[in-house]
Design a protein around this nucleic acid. Sequence first.
DNA 1: TTGTAAAATGAATTTTTATTCATTTATATT
DNA 2: AATATAAATGAATAAAAATTCATTTTACAA
Lengths: 192, 192
Amino acid sequence: MRAKDENKEILILESALKMIARIGLAGLKMSDLAKEAHLATGTLYIYFRDKEELIRKLYLYLLRKSSANVIQGILTNEPLKKRVNKICYNFLIYNLEGPEYGAFFEQYYRSPFFHETESVLAEETAVMQPFYELIIEGQRQGIIKETEPELLVTLICGMLETMAKVSFYSQKSISDKEWETIFSIIWDGIKS
Amino acid sequence: MRAKDENKEILILESALKMIARIGLAGLKMSDLAKEAHLATGTLYIYFRDKEELIRKLYLYLLRKSSANVIQGILTNEPLKKRVNKICYNFLIYNLEGPEYGAFFEQYYRSPFFHETESVLAEETAVMQPFYELIIEGQRQGIIKETEPELLVTLICGMLETMAKVSFYSQKSISDKEWETIFSIIWDGIKS
DNA sequence: TTGTAAAATGAATTTTTATTCATTTATATT
DNA sequence: AATATAAATGAATAAAAATTCATTTTACAA
């Protein structure tokens, strides 16, 4: 007997992610993916029914990963500003270690693989839930601008995603000093 | 005699843009594109050597279009804050009327069609040039934070692109009142 | 050890998609 | 109105990519 390897499934997904960031969903070929993962083409079809299932599973895999990352180390008893800082930082780091993540989502949402019929939508919004709640709490305390929380979260995430992208492509990492600046821009922007 | 139609070339490019925003570069088929543009498949090959040339020309077409839009109506004698507001607004409007634009660039840069060897890079940076210059002027006047202009422009564009995207998908337009809020967030963020 | 069931392989096949081209249609010029 | 020249057509063909499957390899159980 021989067991189907859970790690191999992840190896394939991570390889796919890497390739998609490089050559795009449009350029992803099963044969190239197999090469990247040091496997034969046919092997891919042992782990995934077809290309569509592979891409779909990659989506779910990344969604869960990001959800887990963003809320890491947020302590309820810290001051709000500190918690906002932390969640922003987590979001940035997550996007930094893989701007592939953002790139993938961007492409996935406008691809033949994505159909809204999926029951993933709940899981999707869940990823950002802790962020919303923090903003709302800040508004209740009168610390944060009384604008739609969605608007604020959207602006912040947009900024951070873009930051991560630029930092990645310019090969420059973001120092603590720079993070201070970035966060002050964010905070000055949203505080009331 | 019969003349090759300049408008038809643009019709094809605009159709491609629309389709790419919907189904992605990964999903774009020449036959579907022909249908969208109400043409026969073969006709596409009268205006473009092949798919690659079509996509490349779409890129250049959009680059020029955006460059022209962003600097529209900026008057040198107005106060700096007003000019920053104007350029941000132009950028937002441009991205609003077509979040397809952002979507296309995003996908193009990670596709088999994009090779850095192109001499387009100059044209590319030219698009954002007026933005940089405005920020630098603000820093000279001591009005704007003394951070790398690139960082600031990046943050702002990231925010605005994201805003445009969300506004588009939520089918909600951005009112003057809301623009005031958004711009105050931006301005409070970058002012020194 | 040895038998065996599942995983891995990659060439062969099928499917999809891009591209061509012989034919038809439209328009500018005479 | 007749002619010529280029655009438009879309079925036929070529090219590219996905998927299958007969065969080989691997790892576990007896």
